[in-house]
Amino acid sequence: MTARGTFLTFEGIDGSGKSTQARLLADHLRREGRDVILTREPGGSAGAEEIRNLVLQGDPDRWSAETEILLFTAARRDHLERTIEPALAAGKVVICDRFADSTRMYQGMSRGDLRSLVDQLHNLMIGREPDLTLLIDMDPETGLSRAKGRQGAEERFEDFGVDLQLQMRAGFLALADEFQDRFRVVNGNRDMDSVAQDVTDIVMTSLR
């Protein structure tokens, strides 16, 4: 019987470097001989990637917060069914760039107090949390500058400005305090290699 895999997630404000750190961790674990799936949200499956295009592009006010919660939950359910759960059942390490904690922040508290709605839908349709969440904590102004510097098409949330990033940073740190059993906070205001070393140390201790 194959042992169940491990589910790791990265969280943080836009431009925090979490996507880079997720990729570096995946590369490290593969060199260690582990079977790794690197994925992302919204996205990670064919249907979820289609929803990604809907929620990350267009005007900031394209969707209400309530509609976004439904879209993100639908994308996450498809991602869970088609990518995450099959990989975990096969004993793989799943590394996901964002998961439900981002919805708790960006939709649950950015435009009203909708956290309870996010949690209700999560409990009903998703029903699981990561084994370990790495929060890359970054200065909001620096993060936003990095994110806007990418000049990509998916800038809908960056277009809300630095006030949202300040709110999200405080919210993520509050989540880390709320879920102390699975969150680890990493100082992202350093060079990439120093952050990566801390991430690797935390994860390798968890996987032993």
Rank of each mutant, 00 (worst) to 15 (best):
M1L: 10
T2M: 15
A3P: 14
T6H: 12
L8A: 09
F10H: 05
E11S: 12
E11H: 07
G12K: 14
I13Q: 04
I13C: 12
D14Q: 11
D14T: 08
S16W: 11
S19G: 12
T20F: 14
T20C: 11
A22V: 01
A22R: 02
L25P: 02
A26N: 04
H28S: 04
H28P: 01
L29M: 10
R31A: 12
R31L: 12
E32F: 00
E32G: 11
G33Y: 11
R34W: 05
V36Y: 02
V36S: 07
I37K: 02
T39M: 13
E41H: 07
P42H: 05
G43M: 09
S45Y: 03
G47E: 14
E49G: 02
E49T: 01
R52G: 07
L56E: 12
L56P: 14
Q57E: 15
L71H: 03
T73I: 01
A75L: 09
R76G: 04
R77F: 07
L80F: 07
R82E: 14
T83N: 10
T83K: 04
I84N: 04
P86M: 07
A87S: 14
A87V: 11
A89K: 14
A89Q: 15
A90L: 09
A90K: 13
A90G: 03
A90Y: 01
G91E: 03
K92G: 06
K92A: 15
C96T: 08
D97F: 08
R98S: 02
F99Y: 13
S102P: 09
R104L: 13
Y106D: 10
Q107M: 10
G108K: 09
S110H: 11
G112T: 08
D113G: 13
S116V: 12
V118R: 03
D119H: 04
L121F: 13
H122V: 02
H122I: 03
H122E: 14
N123P: 00
L124S: 10
M125Y: 15
G127N: 05
G127H: 04
P130T: 05
P130H: 06
L134F: 12
L134P: 06
L135E: 09
L135N: 05
I136C: 10
D137I: 07
D137Y: 13
M138A: 13
P140A: 04
E141S: 13
T142D: 03
G143E: 05
R146D: 08
K148W: 00
G149V: 12
G149R: 07
G149Y: 09
R150A: 06
Q151R: 15
A153N: 11
E154I: 01
E158L: 03
D159F: 00
D159M: 08
F160V: 05
V162R: 06
V162D: 10
L164Y: 06
L166M: 09
L166G: 01
Q167G: 05
Q167P: 00
R169A: 09
A170Q: 15
G171A: 08
L175F: 03
L175W: 00
F179V: 01
F179L: 02
R184K: 14
V185T: 15
V186I: 15
N187W: 01
N187Y: 01
N187I: 05
G188I: 03
D193K: 10
V195L: 07
V195T: 13
A196Y: 04
Q197L: 11
Q197V: 03
V199Y: 06
T200H: 10
D201N: 15
M204G: 00
S206M: 13
L207H: 05
R208V: 12
